[in-house]
Amino acid sequence: MSDISCLNPAQTEYYKQLLKNLEEPTAGFFTYATQGNPSTYSGSALMQTVFLPGNSNSVAVCLLQPLSRGYVHIRSVDPYAPARVDPRCLIHPLNLEVFARHMSYISNIVSTEPLASLLNANGRRNITAPSDIADVKAMKEYLKNTAMSSWHPISTCAMLPLGKEGVVNERLVVHGTSN
């Protein structure tokens, strides 16, 4: 997470402007009547835990405009060889900051009516979650260990000019190619 070579000044400036506009969403909040660990495919420590007994309600957060950029590269001339994929989630420091603040806001959501009266005041939290989920610093550490994909990755090929680290142009033609 210390590699910030992917930082793009234009994207960072865009995100800073986005954060100043209170009408623009930066995350989506979801709630569902189950524990938030439906599978073990992510590799996350959170996903490896055993389901806890009793009723559960999960509140999840998904960043809507992440700035972190991963990569997909071929490994070999063999077309059947799997590609090397690294999503580099949360590599951009603004993503971690915004994500942690949204996660900390969950404490406000669950303590506000009508949801508050439906939940056990002494209810369990995920066993690896900070005891004070409003603590942004603790939430950042939690996210570094447990954040995962929302299974809807997009924008593998940025539609931007080549000089702004774009991969395709407005007609979806890969820079440096034809057709």
Results as ranks from 00 to 15, higher is better:
residue 136 V to H: 00
residue 140 K to E: 07
residue 157 C to F: 11
residue 150 S to P: 00
residue 60 A to I: 00
residue 74 I to N: 10
residue 63 L to I: 05
residue 84 R to V: 09
residue 157 C to S: 08
residue 44 S to Q: 05
residue 41 Y to W: 09
residue 92 H to S: 03
residue 73 H to T: 14
residue 26 T to P: 07
residue 111 S to F: 07
residue 25 P to K: 12
residue 24 E to G: 05
residue 8 N to S: 10
residue 129 A to K: 05
residue 163 G to A: 06
residue 40 T to N: 12
residue 101 R to S: 10
residue 48 Q to R: 07
residue 151 W to H: 09
residue 124 R to P: 03
residue 113 E to T: 10
residue 138 A to Q: 05
residue 22 L to T: 06
residue 64 L to I: 08
residue 28 G to W: 02
residue 88 R to F: 08
residue 12 T to M: 02
residue 149 S to D: 04
residue 25 P to R: 08
residue 123 G to Y: 06
residue 28 G to M: 07
residue 173 V to G: 06
residue 156 T to E: 04
residue 68 S to R: 06
residue 46 L to F: 05
residue 136 V to G: 00
residue 16 K to P: 01
residue 178 S to T: 14
residue 31 T to E: 01
residue 107 S to E: 12
residue 99 F to I: 00
residue 13 E to K: 09
residue 15 Y to R: 09
residue 176 G to K: 11
residue 2 S to K: 10
residue 65 Q to S: 07
residue 118 L to Q: 10
residue 115 L to D: 02
residue 172 L to T: 04
residue 124 R to D: 10
residue 144 K to I: 03
residue 15 Y to I: 10
residue 78 D to I: 09
residue 26 T to H: 12
residue 56 S to C: 11
residue 78 D to F: 11
residue 74 I to W: 03
residue 109 I to K: 01
residue 121 A to D: 09
residue 24 E to N: 13
residue 42 S to H: 00
residue 107 S to A: 14
residue 137 K to P: 02
residue 29 F to Y: 11
residue 97 E to S: 09
residue 27 A to G: 08
residue 161 P to Q: 04
residue 150 S to W: 08
residue 97 E to K: 07
residue 74 I to V: 13
residue 96 L to M: 07
residue 21 N to W: 02
residue 27 A to S: 12
residue 80 Y to F: 15
residue 48 Q to A: 14
residue 13 E to C: 06
residue 31 T to G: 15
residue 51 F to M: 14
residue 117 S to I: 13
residue 20 K to E: 10
residue 14 Y to M: 09
residue 175 H to I: 01
residue 130 P to D: 03
residue 136 V to Q: 05
residue 7 L to F: 00
residue 77 V to F: 13
residue 142 Y to P: 03
residue 68 S to Y: 10
residue 55 N to C: 06
residue 44 S to D: 08
residue 19 L to V: 02
residue 66 P to S: 00
residue 70 G to I: 05
residue 33 A to H: 05
residue 97 E to A: 08
residue 146 T to Y: 01
residue 124 R to I: 07
residue 85 V to G: 03
residue 123 G to D: 05
residue 46 L to W: 09
residue 122 N to L: 08
residue 45 A to K: 15
residue 15 Y to C: 10
residue 49 T to Q: 14
residue 98 V to M: 04
residue 172 L to C: 13
residue 32 Y to M: 01
residue 44 S to P: 00
residue 26 T to S: 11
residue 155 S to C: 13
residue 16 K to G: 01
residue 87 P to G: 00
residue 78 D to S: 13
residue 159 M to K: 08
residue 38 P to K: 06
residue 54 G to N: 04
residue 160 L to C: 07
residue 20 K to F: 00
residue 153 P to N: 02
residue 77 V to Q: 13
residue 108 N to Y: 13
residue 44 S to V: 00
residue 134 A to F: 02
residue 155 S to G: 13
residue 27 A to T: 04
residue 66 P to A: 03
residue 45 A to V: 15
residue 117 S to F: 12
residue 110 V to F: 09
residue 6 C to T: 14
residue 51 F to V: 11
residue 158 A to P: 01
residue 150 S to C: 11
residue 70 G to S: 10
residue 154 I to A: 09
residue 10 A to K: 11
residue 123 G to E: 01
